[in-house]
C-alpha cells in the first residue's frame, strides 16, 4: 500500500474523492479533510524496506503463524535437521517473553535472533527490521520468522516476508479456519501439524479443515504432517525447495513477491509500478 498512487482507493470509497474533493465544511462549521490513508501504512513502508533487504541479499523470508503451541518451533527444529546441509537457514523468533525458542533453534546449529515483544501480541515490520540487522543476510538462503503464537493479531502486520505459512495443530479442531478467517486466508500454505495424534483424537477431519479453507476463497495447498513422527515432512521440504527456486528466479528477473492474498489496492499498486 502507498498513499501517493491511489492504491488505497477501492470501490467502496472512490466516490469520496471523485465527488467532493479533499476539503469540505461540516454542519458545525469545522473543516473535514479527506485523508484515505491505510492505518498501517507506516508499518507497510517498513515492511517494503525489509523485503528490499531480503531480495538484495537473495533471502527467502517465510512468516510462520499459528496459535500458541501449534508446533512452529518443533517444525523448525525438524526442518533444520533435515535441510541444514542443503540450505543456509536462520530464524527470527517472536515471543512475548523468554529466549527459549531462539535457544532451541541455536541448539540446532543455525543463527537465531529472539525478539521479545513484551505486551505486543504480534511482530511488526519495525521489530523485524531490528532483528534482520543482527543477521548476516548474505549467508542466509531461508529466513524463517516465527511470529508470536496468536491466531488474530499477526495477520494484520506485513513484515516484509515473501510467504505466509499458517499452522493448525490437530488438537485445536478442524473448524479454526472458519473461526479465524483473517489469518487462514492470508496463508500461502496451511500445515496441519501433530498428525501423529490424529488416531488418538479421532474427531479431526483434515478434509473438513480444507473445506473451511476453500470457503475463504483460498487455493493454498494444505499439508498434513508431524514433526514428531516425521510423517509427510518430505512434502513440506519439497514445497520449501520450490519456494527457494521461485525466489531465486524472481530476483534474477528483478521482481519480488508478497504473500498471495492481497487487497485490491495492493494489486492495483503492482500494476502501476511494475
Amino acid at each position: 500500500m502507498c498513499d501517493t498512487c491511489g492504491c488505497n482507493v477501492t470501490d467502496a470509497n472512490r466516490h469520496l474523492i471523485e465527488a467532493g474533493g479533499r476539503h469540505a465544511k461540516t454542519e458545525s462549521g469545522s473543516e473535514a479533510v479527506t485523508v484515505l490513508q491505510n492505518l498501517l501504512s507506516e508499518n507497510d513502508r517498513e515492511a517494503a524496506h525489509n523485503r528490499e533487504h531480503f531480495d538484495r541479499h537473495g533471502v527467502l523470508a517465510i512468516n510462520l503463524m499459528s496459535s500458541p503451541g501449534s508446533g512452529k518451533t518443533a517444525l523448525l527444529e525438524a526442518s533444520i535437521d533435515a535441510l541444514k546441509s542443503e540450505f543456509r537457514i536462520a530464524v527470527i523468533e517472536g515471543d512475548l517473553e523468554t529466549e527459549n525458542d531462539a535457544a532451541r533453534v541455536r541448539a540446532k546449529g543455525v543463527p537465531a535472533v529472539q525478539i521479545t515483544t513484551g505486551t505486543a501480541c504480534h511482530l511488526d515490520a519495525h521489530m523485524v527490521h531490528q532483528g534482520l540487522h543482527k543477521l548476516d543476510l548474505d549467508t542466509i538462503d531461508i529466513l524463517f520468522i516465527e511470529n508470536v503464537g496468536n491466531l488474530v493479531c499477526p495477520a494484520s502486520f506485513d513484515l516484509g516476508q515473501h510467504l505466509n505459512v499458517t499452522l493448525l495443530s490437530v488438537t485445536e479442531g478442524d473448524d479454526k479456519p472458519a473461526k479465524y478467517p483473517v489469518i487462514f486466508r492470508a496463508a500461502d500454505l496451511m500445515l496441519v501439524t501433530k498428525c501423529d495424534l490424529l488416531q488418538v483424537l479421532g474427531d479431526f477431519e483434515p478434509a473438513r479443515a480444507e473445506h473451511h479453507l476453500r470457503h475463504l476463497a483460498s487455493e493454498a495447498p494444505m499439508l498434513p504432517l508431524s514433526a514428531r513422527s516425521g510423517e509427510n515432512l518430505d512434502a513440506w521440504f519439497s514445497w520449501l525447495r520450490q519456494a527457494v527456486a521461485e525466489q531465486a528466479a524472481r530476483i534474477a528477473r528483478g521482481e519480488t513477491a508478497r504473500p498471495s492474498i492481497q487487497p485490491e489496492g495492493a494489486q492495483l499498486h503492482a500494476h502501476t509500478h511494475p
Binding site: 467502496a12 479533510v33 487455493e219
Partner: peptide, 25 residues
C-alpha cells in the same frame, strides 16, 4: 468468501479489508 452466484471459491475481494483513515474534522 465463495461466489454467491455459482459457488466457485476462485474469487477476489472487492471490499471488506479496509483499515482506513477516511477523514479528519
Amino acid at each position: 468468501l465463495v461466489c454467491g452466484d455459482c459457488g466457485s471459491f476462485r474469487t477476489t475481494l472487492i471490499s471488506g479489508e479496509e483499515l482506513m483513515l477516511k477523514n479528519v474534522e
